[in-house]
Computed example of a mutant assay.
Amino acid sequence: MSIDAPRGRSASVIGSLAENSSLRSRVTDVLRQAMVAGELEPGRIYSAPTLAERLGVSATPVREAMMELAQEGLVEPLRHRGYRVVEVGDVVLDEIIELRSLIEVPTVGRVARIATSEQVALLRPLADRLNATAAAGELQEFIATDTDFHLRLLAIAGNGRLVEEIRRLRGMSRLSALRRLYEEDRLGATAQEHHDLLDLIEAREVSGAEELMRRHLGHVRGVWAGREEV
């Protein structure tokens, strides 16, 4: 079973990793990003050799990555068949976003109270990169940069366990509509919210930063996942 490259201008989430260091970690990250973006489709079964061929690596790091993703609840190992991508239904997605809101909204408020100008400045290039990747339809880079941005932002609050929990919850999301949003020229608007959020944090607008973070998470629950927002 192969992974078909997407049509149009946008790049595939799955790309060659043959020259990457820390191979298992990179394979895990890219497969997780492919699941979040919906390129590895929920309910479908993928074999390690097929994925390895697509990635340009051996089957061993793919199997190791899939076992790690199975521990996270993202795939289900099937004996002698491969790995089934776990479907995330509406109820589960709502629960994930509720948890993320309970954690991320007040944490962003705390960051708005304590962040230095230097810390905010370090995040600006990531926000720039999000605008660029959204405009180019580079979904692999968009998802990776979006994750990096939010985890670095939350890390300013100083709680490493909180950051790791959000990393896990983000991996369980399914942003199946990102490619459609790019094709409809709507992805850039949500990408720009990262700069807006930094502006609010730099101005120490705590309530404004919290409200924007709440609205931003609404995109994940709604339009990014191909659903109406509430």
Rank of each mutant, 00 (worst) to 15 (best):
E95D: 13
L51V: 05
R215L: 13
H195Y: 13
R170W: 07
E53I: 08
D196P: 00
A155I: 07
R110Q: 14
I114R: 09
R32S: 12
L31Q: 02
G208K: 11
E138T: 04
R81D: 06
T133C: 07
L175P: 00
V230R: 15
Q119I: 07
V36P: 01
W224G: 00
A5Q: 10
V163Q: 07
S176H: 05
A136S: 14
E205V: 00
T190R: 12
L162S: 03
R204I: 06
L181R: 15
L102R: 14
T190S: 15
E184P: 02
V163D: 09
R161G: 12
S16E: 10
R124V: 15
L69N: 04
A59Y: 10
G171F: 07
I96P: 02
E211I: 02
A115M: 10
V13F: 02
W224M: 15
N20T: 09
A155K: 13
P42D: 10
V27M: 01
T28R: 07
E41A: 09
A11M: 10
A5E: 11
A48T: 11
L102H: 09
D196N: 08
M67C: 00
H216M: 14
L175C: 11
R124K: 15
N131T: 12
R167P: 02
G73Y: 00
I156Q: 11
V36K: 02
A59H: 13
E210D: 08
M66V: 03
S173R: 14
